[in-house]
Design a protein around this nucleic acid. Sequence first.
DNA 1: CGGCCATGTGAGCTTTCCGCACATGACCCG
DNA 2: CGGGTCATGTGCGGAAAGCTCACATGGCCG
Lengths: 304, 304
Amino acid sequence: MTRRALPPLNGLRAFEAYARSGSMIAAAEALGVTHGAVSRQVRGLELQLGARLLTGPKHALVLSEAGRELAKALTPAFDLIAAALPGAGPSEELVVSCLGTLSMKWLIPRLPAFLDAHPGLRVRIQESHAPVDFSAGGLHAAIRVLSAKSASAYRAVTIMPLHHGPVLSPALLAETGADAERLLRLPRLRSETFRPAWDLWAQGQGVALPSGVTEREFEHNSYMLEAAAAGLGVAVTPWPFAQADIERGRLVAPFGFQALAERFVYLRPPYGDHPAAEAFGQWLAREGRRNARPPAAVVTLGAK
Amino acid sequence: MTRRALPPLNGLRAFEAYARSGSMIAAAEALGVTHGAVSRQVRGLELQLGARLLTGPKHALVLSEAGRELAKALTPAFDLIAAALPGAGPSEELVVSCLGTLSMKWLIPRLPAFLDAHPGLRVRIQESHAPVDFSAGGLHAAIRVLSAKSASAYRAVTIMPLHHGPVLSPALLAETGADAERLLRLPRLRSETFRPAWDLWAQGQGVALPSGVTEREFEHNSYMLEAAAAGLGVAVTPWPFAQADIERGRLVAPFGFQALAERFVYLRPPYGDHPAAEAFGQWLAREGRRNARPPAAVVTLGAK
DNA sequence: CGGCCATGTGAGCTTTCCGCACATGACCCG
DNA sequence: CGGGTCATGTGCGGAAAGCTCACATGGCCG
């Protein structure tokens, strides 16, 4: 086995991007990094090669002779690689069943990042709450909420824990004040898809919900959340459903969020080997890890 | 600027090595890493691509269809790059002046690693203790021992600090015992190239050297070290000179090593731009950092 | 001559990568 | 049929690479 001494490949990629675009900043954008990163990579490559690739004053850099030579080979080489990547042919479609609200509020907004990173892959999301049935075929994976025990019956990976808590519009909070008792007397919003949310939360917090409070029920979590954002009352919802709205300031969660025993899991048929489904699962778990931390409470229950 | 979505290049390199060698272990050796590293890289690439590259039971892995396609493109692509690297032409020679003992004991044993990483570069080492004179030409850089102040007159980078201390053969130590007073009465070995070594060390330790002790003087540090290894007495030497012998058990340093104000520095002419010389300096500094930590004392001075 | 634009750089943090040691699993051989 | 061996997979901890952010630099242009 001949031993080939190649310089750092990431440096080559950065240099090639620079050579094609003619500017650090443009290359940085093409690679999705900052200009400083490209600058370092190119510098590191020059050091490694022991040769100058760029010359001239730094506001008007120009490829050196050696740099031109190298770039002339790099571009076709990378093109060759890109053309040979699997998935260059007809794109494969991954079919995933997902809980409706999770899909709308969490998955779809993140999906472009996955698709960008996996060109030649398409993902079709089917919304469903029904128990997962892979036997019908045509479905490669599913996302559900399950307890650890139920999940163990499947080939499952945990995406993220399930934290839930009450959310409302900032305006309604301001009007009511940061007072736990008053907040719990605001109209309660429920979703048909998960009626016990409020009771489960109250039980977990060890508080009793005052009775005689207006309740409104919605067909879906997403309607309920819209209503909450519109200031109609307080909804108890999983953190991933509210995360984007909270970060944008459309909703606030004065009591923070509480962990439930269930988790969001990614399920696959117990048989078969589907690399794209596997990659999607890994990516989901990663995204889940990056976003699993809900904000803490700012209003204490039981405090006056 | 078109945006090309390439998978992790290090994964591609690992996969190509695997495809060429037909085995994880062979590929690992070709890349200078362990088989586990290759295994992970290939696995990561499969995940990223969302496609199987290898199939079959793990004791008889075989390239999949997609894997063959990819490998077929990767090998020429990497060859193309390798051929276009600067330095493919006539190899450049870097001329470096170095202190004799440092060269023999420290630099030369490490040099192959640098040359491996920089094919198309040759390094000629000239041994010299004389003050550095770049004006004569033909010299690209030099390695010397200087104080921070003197070094600031040059274009200099620090390679490593200068620690020195007494060393002797393990046999002689065993015979004498771990007793500071008795050890300091053993014959003292000196080198003409640095006569004040013993006095400087004693002063730094705050001890007085017993008088009336046999002394032997040698023309060079390396003769002195050989004598020490042969059990003729105790030599005070910089850590880098003794490092290899200590690690191999030929020498021991019961008192550890003591820092001096001088350092090993890499000097370059103040003018001119020599990427290979720059790369060599960076590599030296790096090697220096990896080896700068001398062992601690095991015999305390002043203790009975 | 002051502001602007492109690139270089120091500090600190995150991610990737690797080595090590061990696990796994399949084959072989007696 | 059980132990040995060979090739590959994997959890863990630590090292290196890579990145961002913020600021420095240095030349151009108005």
